[in-house]
Nucleic acid binder design. Structure first.
Length: 264
DNA sequence: GCAAAATGTCAAG
DNA sequence: TTGACCTTTTGCA
């Protein structure tokens, strides 16, 4: 279940598994049959990720994937088992296979089309070309609350519903603070924190935002119910101050926050 | 057996 | 702001 860290981690795994190989590409489900035929048998040359978008480069053609809310990828050792009927795309290389199920987007695009996708995406903290000052400009010009702007992929690419609540809690900033009132040094801190959290997510494959002193057990593998400060914890005690965690709708999603640590 | 929810996004009204 | 779409898992009859 994907925010930006999932996609960048996936990009790395796909690169390690398949780059330079001829791939057999099919669509057991059928909905990607014509796209699969365009790249079937070609060599995977490059893999690119921007926010929650993944691009697999076969010379001049790219397979563009967006997992949406439900998409999943299985990437494992060959031989591949009989595919489930919902497998939109299967790629098989020399030693590994990949199954993609439930994506919002799976399509073949040209390099020019790929460029237009990048153009409408904002700065991705996991990319070398990230521009935190550009993101800040957009935040300041926007009347919307910071908790809504953080989910806008044309401002910051890769942040999803978990990271938005968690990073704002860590910064002590209310999700309802209007973007134009967010001070520059505060934004700089949020950006830096977001970058570190996303990188940790790429490394571990999960979202962990709590400091050791805010967990029930301070060493060993972080337990699932210890990993987050506020996300999904409505009515439970804030890990930092003990106040009850609140949930509200913001930008059509639930946002979780602590009224004491993040005063309005 | 079915409804609801889940780390997402877009288009219609 | 709402509904539609993609799929799996969980919880309740």
């Amino acid at each position: 279940m994907p925010e930006g860290h999932t996609i960048h981690r996936l990009a790395r795994r796909v690169r390690d598994s398949f780059r330079g190989e001829h791939l057999d590409v099919t669509s057991p489900q059928g909905r990607f049959a014509s796209g699969a035929a365009l790249v079937d048998g070609r060599v995977l040359r490059r893999v690119d990720a921007h926010g929650k978008h993944l691009f697999l480069g076969f010379d001049e053609l790219w397979v563009h994937v967006h997992l949406g809310l439900f998409g999943t990828v299985t990437l494992a050792a060959a031989p591949a088992p009989d595919p489930r009927p919902t497998v939109r795309m299967r790629m098989v290389g020399g030693s590994r296979y990949l199954d993609l199920r439930g994506p919002t987007i799976c399509e073949v695009v040209t390099a020019a089309h790929k460029a237009t996708i990048h153009a409408r995406l904002g700065s991705d903290p996991l990319r070398a070309d990230a521009r935190p000052d550009d993101a800040y400009g957009r935040i300041r010009r926007r009347g919307a609350p910071i908790g809504a702007v953080l989910l806008d992929q044309s401002v910051v690419a890769g942040v999803g519903n978990v990271y938005r609540s968690e990073v704002l809690h860590r910064a002590g900033v209310s999700p309802f603070l209007p973007g134009r009132l967010l001070a520059e040094p505060v934004w700089a801190g949020i950006w830096e924190d977001l970058t570190a959290l996303l990188r940790a997510g790429v490394r571990s494959g999960r979202i962990v935002t709590t400091a050791p002193e805010h967990r029930s057990r301070r060493s060993g593998r972080v337990r699932r119910d210890d990993a987050l400060y506020v996300y999904g914890r409505t009515g439970e005690a804030c890990r930092r101050c003990g106040a009850r965690v609140r949930a509200d709708d913001l930008a059509a999603r639930r946002v979780y926050w602590c009224p004491t640590c993040q005063p309005e």
